[in-house]
């Protein structure tokens, strides 16, 4: 006897049929690389030596002793933390500025969008010239604002190169953060501000007790989003400093690139990817746990 398929079951099957192609593509493009990468990270896999042997956690142990990797890890942490702090503060400030009613607001909004619209690789190549000691606009601007004779070799100095890379990164990412925060701020009902003002709240109190709590969920999601992209940053040092001078600006993603495409050591490159994957995952999980606790 034929079993009759109920309407709801048919709907479920139909829904699965619609979703299945996407799921298969997703599994192929995301799950498979993750599994393959995890597998490679356990191998001594070096194309130049034509070697591919199971090595257990040897790659991770080697990384823990590798000075260059540790320097990269340290700079990536520094780069991410400083960038996030400045992006948050400047992004919120810019969003609040763009929210105000004043002449030229549209122009400011348009100008603020420009860095976001540019490709990171283009920004980095331009920055290489901007920080050049002979042609660079940065030294020139500093001289023009009153520091006559100022000269600093930004990209040939350990700290200078790190500062330059972080400044460019912040400049590029602030506008995106600001635009999303602006949209969130604009969603706050006007009555909330009116009530706060009637109760005698100052602008600062309104910001910290009304505006920011109201947009907290967007704020946290943005911190997760921006943080993850900072941990995985690559193009900026690829085009601007090549990880130098020395290894001072060598981000984890750049080290990974060197191992994979230059040294052709896929085992080590996969181990670095694994570390980045875990760092990103931990950061994301902590962020999401905080996000779930926020209730406004």
């Amino acid at each position: 006897m034929k079993r009759k398929i109920t309407l709801s079951r048919r709907k479920t099957i139909f829904a699965w049929m619609c979703v299945l192609p996407v799921l298969v593509i997703r599994l192929w493009t995301t799950a498979y690389p993750v599994v393959a990468m995890s597998y490679y990270s356990l191998l001594d896999y070096d194309l130049i030596r034509r070697k591919k042997e199971f090595a257990g956690l040897q790659n991770i142990r080697n990384l823990a002793k590798n000075k260059q990797f540790l320097e990269s890890l340290s700079f990536t942490v520094k780069f991410t933390m400083i960038s996030i702090c400045f992006i948050i503060v400047l992004g919120v400030a810019l969003a609040l500025l763009m929210k105000q009613n004043f002449g030229g607001r549209k122009l400011i909004r348009t100008v603020a969008l420009i860095p976001w619209g540019l490709s990171m690789i283009v920004v980095s190549i331009a920055a290489l010239w901007a920080f050049d000691d002979t042609y660079g606009i940065v030294n020139d601007l500093i001289r023009r604002i009153g520091f006559e004779g100022y000269h600093f070799t930004w990209l040939a100095d350990k700290s200078g190169a790190q500062v330059a890379v972080i400044i460019v990164n912040i400049w590029k990412n602030v506008s995106f953060f600001a635009i999303i925060m602006l949209a969130a701020f604009q969603g706050i009902p006007g009555e909330l501000f009116e009530s706060a003002r009637i109760d005698g709240a100052s602008n600062w109190k309104i910001l910290f007790h009304v505006s920011l709590p109201y947009v907290m969920r967007t704020f946290i999601i943005m911190i997760i989003f921006v943080g993850v992209s900072q941990i995985n940053s690559f193009e900026i040092v690829y085009a601007m400093t090549k990880g130098g001078p020395g290894t001072t600006t060598s981000l984890l993603a750049y080290r990974l690139y060197m191992e994979a495409t230059k040294n052709m050591n896929y085992g080590m490159a996969s181990a670095i990817t694994m570390v980045m994957f875990l760092v990103t995952a931990v950061y994301g999980i902590i962020g999401l746990r905080i996000y779930r606790k926020v209730d406004y």
Partner: peptide, 22 residues
């Protein structure tokens, strides 16, 4: 050598450190 790309990253990085007086 077959490892010249690695040389360009590691060994010249050390030379840069010396040239910077690090």
């Amino acid at each position: 050598s077959e490892r010249h790309s690695e040389y360009m990253d590691t060994v010249t990085g050390t030379l840069q450190e010396y040239l910077m007086d690090e």
